[in-house]
């Protein structure tokens, strides 16, 4: 059972940490449906010999072919905008689309954690180790890096090594995949009464 589950869990973990690109695909599909429905309606109306809704199919055809005679600035601008949108779509379709999540090694289940949760747990431990108010601790967690920013209270120096040790120990205990390295930054200027 556990060997089947390994493959199953690997699949689930991969799908949970990457975006399905569903929203974009649905939006594009809806746009295509609207365009197709409109073109189809225009063709049927033209076949019945009734006046067109917006543009008759024959006019669509001739204006598309007569593109080179239209004002160059408008056509060029529209073409470039369309090409850029197309390029962005191609990039989105090929890029991995990682979500801000990490996988944790657990034996019973596949576990995914939002980076936000990791950050707030690290912030709690960092502020405790650095003797800093929790409100003056900022942590941001990205794919491979956790950046801890501390602003110490005036007169109470924060020990960078202690904080680094505490944060690294926490990160090691979580067993995140991919692994996250901590970088601790302690502000030069402390705050009064913080």
């Amino acid at each position: 059972m556990s060997s089947d589950n390994k493959a199953l869990y690997a699949r689930i973990s991969r799908r949970e940490t990457h975006s399905p690109r569903s929203l974009l695909a649905i939006v594009l599909a809806v746009v295509l449906i609207v365009v197709f429905a409109w073109v189809g309606t225009e063709v049927v109306i033209a076949l019945l010999g009734l006046p067109a809704l917006l543009v008759a199919p024959s006019d669509m055809f001739t204006s598309a072919l007569g593109l080179a005679e239209q004002p160059a600035a408008i056509v060029a601008a529209a073409g470039i905008v369309a090409a850029v949108i197309g390029l962005v779509l191609i990039i989105l379709s090929l890029s991995p689309g990682r979500r801000a999540r990490h996988v944790i090694d657990t034996e019973r289940a596949a576990t995914v954690v939002d980076n936000e949760v990791i950050a707030s747990a690290l912030a709690r431990h960092a502020s405790y180790a650095g003797n800093v108010d929790p409100d003056n601790t900022t942590v941001s967690v990205s794919h491979r890096r956790a950046v801890v920013d501390l602003t110490p209270t005036s007169g109470i120096p924060a020990n960078r090594d202690d904080v680094t040790e505490a944060v690294t120990a926490q990160l090691d205990a979580y067993g995140l995949r991919p692994t996250v390295r901590a970088r601790v930054q302690i502000a030069e200027k402390a705050k009064v009464g913080a």
Partner: peptide, 10 residues
């Protein structure tokens, strides 16, 4: 039963 645990903030 196989399971997925999703821990989120929000």
């Amino acid at each position: 039963l196989p399971a997925l645990i999703q821990i989120s903030g929000g």
